[in-house]
């Protein structure tokens, strides 16, 4: 195992430590790095402009996560309700798109959404000749792209706990007089929270650091942290500030992951209680 650990240390730990170090230096006038210690890059992260971009990214990523979880949970629920022998097939096909190229899946939405694209043509086919607002280059397009790209993972994450659910639990709940809704809310949902949390966190974390989707589907009109980091490294040539932004991104990610672990712990505690109640 030594070589693998050496590899990870040399090509992940050290470079990431380097980025952390970079964040404490100053940018030269034309890019490059001046080796004088400063905290101003971290201060700049909290500048209203950049803090605003963080918040906006979080909002877009959060919306994408919410939508993906709603659709993904419904899909996972439907798959788990299907006949046993069909479940692996459904699941396989739900996940398959996830393994095709991300850029291509995003590009497919440009083809669908542009003003002269397929959706417009369908509308015309049906006789609609009115003004067609652009669907591409909107926040909706960016969110649709994110949901589309990450949905398979959410389905997977939600399916795992749903498929392990003991059907007797739901029956017991109903036998005790609970309505279907109550059963879902009090028994099924708590038991599947870890899956929901994992799916939501996954979508959120990948979305907030994404730069490809806003660049291609947002028409440059939407800045997310990913774009900002990209810009600092490849266009503004302010590596130290880019490094500080990247570290802030990692910090947000760790916070979200910790929150998820905590939520999962609580949920499993509650689930055990619920199970105890149902068994009793």
């Amino acid at each position: 195992m030594a070589p693998a650990l050496v590899w990870l240390t040399a090509l992940m730990v050290v470079p990431c430590a380097l980025v952390l170090a970079l964040a404490f230096f100053r940018r030269g006038i034309y890019g490059g790095i001046e080796y004088t210690f400063t905290l101003e890059n971290f201060g700049l992260v909290f500048d209203p402009l950049y803090a605003g971009i963080f918040l906006n990214s979080a909002r877009i990523a959060g919306t994408a996560a919410l939508i993906a979880v709603v659709i993904g949970y419904a899909a996972a629920y439907a798959i788990a309700a299907a006949p046993r022998r069909l479940q692996p097939v459904f699941l396989f096909f739900a996940v398959l798109p996830f393994w095709s190229n991300y850029l291509i899946r995003t590009y497919a939405w440009i083809v669908l959404l542009n003003r002269e694209g397929l959706i417009t043509q369908l509308l015309r086919w049906f006789g609609y000749t009115g003004e067609q607002p652009s669907m591409l280059y909107t926040e909706g397009a960016v969110i649709a792209g994110l949901v589309y790209n990450y949905l398979p993972f959410v389905i997977l994450a939600c399916y795992a706990p749903l498929s392990r659910l003991n059907p007797e639990l739901a029956e017991a709940s109903r036998d005790l007089g609970a309505s279907a809704l109550t059963t879902f809310r009090r028994v099924i949902l708590p038991l599947t929270v870890p899956g929901i949390a994992a799916g939501a966190v996954f979508v959120f974390v990948l979305s907030i650091g994404n730069f490809v989707t806003p660049a291609l589907l947002g028409g440059g009109r939407f800045q997310m942290i990913g774009n900002l980091v990209y810009d600092q490294f490849l266009t503004a040539n302010d590596w130290p500030f880019g490094a500080a932004l990247a570290m802030a991104l990692i910090a947000i990610m760790l916070l979200v992951l910790m929150a998820q672990a905590l939520a999962a712990d609580r949920a499993s505690g509650r689930a055990a209680e619920a199970k105890g109640d149902a068994d009793g």
Binding site: L49, G52, I53, G220, F222, Q223, A236, D238
Partner: peptide
Amino acid sequence: VGDAQRDYSKIVSEIKAAQ
């Protein structure tokens, strides 16, 4: 424009981040 390029970059960021 030398150092002012930083201000330019920031203004452009503000424009692109504006809602």
